[in-house]
Design a protein around this nucleic acid. Structure first.
Length: 354
DNA sequence: TAGACGTGGCC
DNA sequence: TGGCCAAGTCT
């Protein structure tokens, strides 16, 4: 085959063999060619962590999780609170709840082995179309069509797809399928994602060094950097509320485990009023002397939050109707979701003076 | 099906 | 500073 005739998947694979990112959960192209495949547990764990999350943010969490729980059986046996505490700061906490649920199903019902097919994987909690395809492809070398945000971007540019997302999704999936080779599908999937992450980036793609620049129709049309098109986003409303940081005479802090399937569900947090666009009605935990300790601002996916922080010292025999005291020695701010850690950062200097 | 669901980095 | 963006899933 003449060089100019080399197919897109062929160019991509050749590029990947020389430029694959080295990642802790990955087996490099040379070892994969030699027949080695990565540990499905590590692939699964990394894929869950990487959902809507950057590689940079995931690395330290992945290291800690695999050190604490080296295999799915170990993770399945962990306490909920410990796993949620280790996930704190990574966001999208439903992922951590589903991670544990999934680990327990795999350990208990599947003998500790992950399903090797998309269909089997798809039945597990927290594994959707993308993750099922990614695990089947990367961990088991199945020719699954892996479509994440990177692939959507690469494919929409290669074929100059101007239909806005999410309407363009079926078309992009079809085109991604046409590119998926029967040979080395796992390397192909990772090559597409590496290309999207390092060269075919959202803002200023490095077309000058792109291995598929020549066949790229988006580049030829001069519109690559504007693709994929996306539907306009809605404005975020501002919600307000109050967080209460109470410290007992012995230093213990009043925290509560937030209800599952809610915002920050399953995570530890300070008792709060509800967060709404109107001033809150809910009463604070019983205490005589709440003092203002500033405000925390935090932005979630769909709203901005302004949380007033109030602090109080509670008598040793206090019996609050919500939450539970955590002894000073056991309290780890790092086990709080970021919003709640911000509240603590605001409250901590003042509360020790109380 | 569109909205809920986190966070940190970048410009 | 504030809006945008990043390896999606669930309901």
């Amino acid at each position: 085959m003449k060089a100019g005739m080399e197919t897109v998947p062929g160019r991509l694979l050749r590029w990947y063999d020389g430029h694959a990112r080295e990642l802790p959960w990955r087996i490099g192209p040379a070892r994969r060619i030699a027949g080695e495949l990565p540990d499905p547990y590590r692939v699964w764990l990394s894929e869950i962590m990487l959902q809507q999350t950057t590689v940079a943010a995931v690395k330290s969490y992945f290291a800690r999780f695999t050190a604490l729980w080296p295999d799915v059986t170990a993770l399945a046996a962990a306490e909920d609170a410990e796993v949620m505490g280790e996930w704190a700061g990574l966001g999208y906490y439903a992922r951590a709840r589903n991670l544990l649920a999934c680990a327990r199903i795999v350990a208990r019902d599947l003998g500790g082995a992950f399903p090797e097919t998309e269909e089997g994987l798809r039945r597990l909690p927290g594994i959707g179309p993308y993750t099922a395809a990614a695990i089947a492809s990367i961990a088991f070398d199945r020719a699954a069509v892996v479509v994440d945000g990177n692939v959507e971007r690469v494919v929409s540019r290669l074929f100059a797809v101007e239909t806005p997302l999410p309407a363009a999704k079926p078309e992009l999936t079809e085109l991604a399928g046409q590119l998926t080779p029967a040979r080395r599908p796992g390397c192909h999937a990772q090559a597409m994602m590496d290309l999207g992450a390092t060269i075919c980036t959202p803002k200023s793609p490095a077309c000058m060094v792109c291995p598929v620049a020549e066949p790229c129709r988006g580049r030829a049309a001069g519109i690559a950097s504007t693709l994929p098109r996306k539907a306009p986003k809605k404005a975020k409303p501002i919600r307000i509320g109050t967080a209460y940081v109470a410290r007992r005479a012995d230093g213990a802090l009043l925290l509560e485990t937030r209800p599952p399937r809610s915002l920050l569900g399953g995570m530890l947090g300070w008792p709060c009023t509800d967060w709404s666009e109107e001033p809150p009605l809910e009463a604070p935990p019983a205490a005589s002397n709440w003092q203002a300790a500033g405000e925390v601002r935090h932005t979630f996916t769909h709203f901005h939050l302004r949380l007033a922080v109030r602090i109080a010292r509670l008598p040793q025999d206090a019996a609050p109707d919500r939450g539970h005291f955590i002894p000073e020695a056991e309290f780890r701010p790092a086990s709080l979701p970021t919003l709640m850690r911000k509240v603590w950062d605001r409250a901590a200097p003042a509360i020790s003076e109380l």
